[in-house]
C-alpha cells in the first residue's frame, strides 16, 4: 500500500510516495517525488494508483534511476556538470547529493568545471607513450600555455591527457572533439591547433 510522506531537506519540504514490495526473501522500496505542495485528497488517490501501476508494469531498470545516464545527458547538454544541475537531479531522482557526486567523480568522462569549445585529448596509452606522447603533451602545454586538464582563458581549447583512444597503430595520436589525428609531431600539431577556429 503506497503512503505519502513529507521529507525535509534544508528547511524545504518535499512530498514523496513510498511503497515496499516483497519478492521471496528480498525487499524492494520504491519512491516517487510529487513536488513541494501536498496534493489534494482525490488527486492523491489517483497518484497512488498510477504509482502502483508503474511499479507493476515497469521493469526494474526503469524504476531504479540511472545516475550515469542522467549525468551523461546533462554533460551532453552543457559540456560539463554544473552544480545546480547536480542538486536538481538529486531532488528529482531522490538520491543523496553525495552519491551523485560520488558517481560524477568516479568516471573520467564527467567534468565538474566548464570546458572549452575544442577538447584536445592527448592519448597517453601505451603505444602512444612508447612513441613519445609525453613530449607531445609537454609541447602542447607550453604552446597553449595551460596544463593538462585546464582551459585557455578565451574558453576555446581544453587540454586533456586521456588513456588510450584506440588509435594505437597511428601513435602518437590526439583527439579533438570526435576527430582523431594520428602520427603526429610538434609541427603537425601546431598546424592542427592553428586550424581550429
Amino acid at each position: 500500500m503506497p503512503y505519502l510522506r513529507k521529507v525535509k531537506i534544508k528547511n524545504n519540504e518535499y512530498y514523496y510516495l513510498f511503497h515496499t514490495t516483497r519478492d521471496g526473501d528480498k525487499f524492494r522500496k520504491y519512491s516517487k517525488y510529487l513536488g513541494k505542495d501536498k496534493p489534494e485528497r482525490e488527486r492523491l488517490q489517483i497518484m497512488k494508483d498510477e504509482f502502483l501501476n508503474e511499479i507493476k508494469t515497469k521493469k526494474p531498470e526503469d524504476i531504479k534511476p540511472n545516475v550515469v545516464e542522467a549525468l551523461q545527458k546533462i554533460q551532453s547538454e552543457n559540456g560539463f556538470l554544473p552544480k545546480e544541475e547536480l542538486i536538481r537531479i538529486s531532488h528529482e531522482l531522490d538520491i543523496p547529493g553525495t552519491d551523485i557526486y560520488g558517481v560524477a567523480t568516479f568516471y573520467g568522462q564527467f567534468k565538474l568545471a566548464e570546458r572549452g569549445k575544442y577538447i584536445v585529448s592527448v592519448c597517453t596509452g601505451t603505444a602512444c607513450h612508447v612513441k613519445g606522447s609525453n613530449n607531445l603533451l609537454d609541447f602542447l602545454e607550453k604552446y597553449l600555455k595551460i596544463k593538462a586538464g585546464e582551459t585557455t582563458a578565451d574558453r576555446k581549447i581544453t587540454l586533456e591527457a586521456v588513456n588510450c583512444i584506440g588509435a594505437c597503430a597511428r601513435a602518437p595520436a590526439i583527439m579533438i572533439n570526435d576527430n582523431v589525428y594520428g602520427e603526429l609531431d610538434e609541427e603537425k600539431v601546431k598546424k592542427i591547433i592553428a586550424g581550429l577556429k
Binding site: T126, C128, N163, C164, G166, C168, A169
Partner: peptide
C-alpha cells in the same frame, strides 16, 4: 569496454 591501452581489436 576495451580500456587496455594498446588494444583496439574490439573497436
Amino acid at each position: 569496454d576495451e580500456g587496455d591501452p594498446g588494444a583496439f581489436m574490439n573497436r
